[in-house]
Computed example of a mutant assay.
Amino acid sequence: MDPDLERMVELLNEIDDILCCPRCDLALSRTKVVVGSGPLDARIVLIGEAPGRNEDEKGEPFVGAAGRNLDALLEKSGIQRRDVYITNVVKCRPPGNRPPRACEIEACHPYLQRQLEAISPKIIVLMGRTAAEAMLERKVNLGKEHGTVIEKGGIKYMITYHPAAMIYNQWLGDTIAGDFKKVSALLLEG
Results as ranks from 00 to 15, higher is better:
Met1Ala: 15
Pro3Gly: 12
Pro3Ile: 11
Pro3Gln: 11
Pro3Glu: 13
Leu5Gln: 12
Arg7Asn: 12
Met8Gln: 12
Val9His: 06
Val9Met: 07
Glu10Gln: 15
Leu11Asp: 08
Leu12His: 05
Ile15Asp: 07
Ile15Gly: 06
Asp16Gln: 15
Asp17Ala: 13
Ile18Trp: 00
Cys21Ser: 15
Cys21Asn: 13
Pro22Met: 11
Cys24Val: 06
Leu26Cys: 04
Leu26Asp: 09
Ala27Asp: 06
Lys32Ser: 10
Gly38Met: 05
Gly38Tyr: 07
Gly38Trp: 09
Pro39Thr: 09
Pro39Glu: 12
Leu40Met: 14
Arg43Thr: 14
Leu46Lys: 01
Gly52Asn: 07
Asn54Phe: 04
Lys58Gly: 05
Glu60Tyr: 11
Pro61Glu: 02
Pro61Leu: 01
Ala72Asp: 03
Leu73Cys: 04
Leu74Glu: 01
Leu74His: 04
Leu74Asn: 07
Glu75Ile: 02
Lys76His: 06
Gly78Asn: 04
Asp83Lys: 02
Asp83Asn: 08
Val84Leu: 05
Tyr85Ser: 02
Thr87His: 08
Thr87Met: 05
Thr87Val: 02
Asn88Ser: 06
Asn88Met: 02
Val89Tyr: 07
Lys91His: 14
Pro94Tyr: 00
Pro95Met: 00
Arg101Glu: 11
Ala102Gln: 14
Glu106Lys: 04
Ala107Trp: 01
His109Met: 09
Pro110Asn: 05
Pro110Tyr: 10
Gln113Ala: 05
Gln113Phe: 04
Arg114Met: 03
Arg114Gln: 06
Leu116Pro: 10
Glu117His: 12
Glu117Met: 13
Ala118Cys: 15
Lys122Ser: 15
Lys122Asn: 12
Ile123Glu: 00
Ile124Lys: 03
Ile124Pro: 00
Met127Ile: 02
Gly128Arg: 06
Arg129Trp: 02
Ala131Tyr: 03
Glu137Asp: 09
Leu142Val: 09
Lys144His: 09
Thr148Trp: 11
Lys152Gln: 13
Ile155Gly: 12
Ile155Val: 15
Ile155Leu: 06
Ile159Pro: 05
Thr160Val: 05
Gly173Tyr: 14
Gly173Phe: 05
Thr175Ser: 06
Ile176Pro: 02
Lys181Gly: 01
Val183Ile: 08
Ala185Trp: 11
Leu186Ala: 11
Glu189Lys: 13
Glu189Met: 09
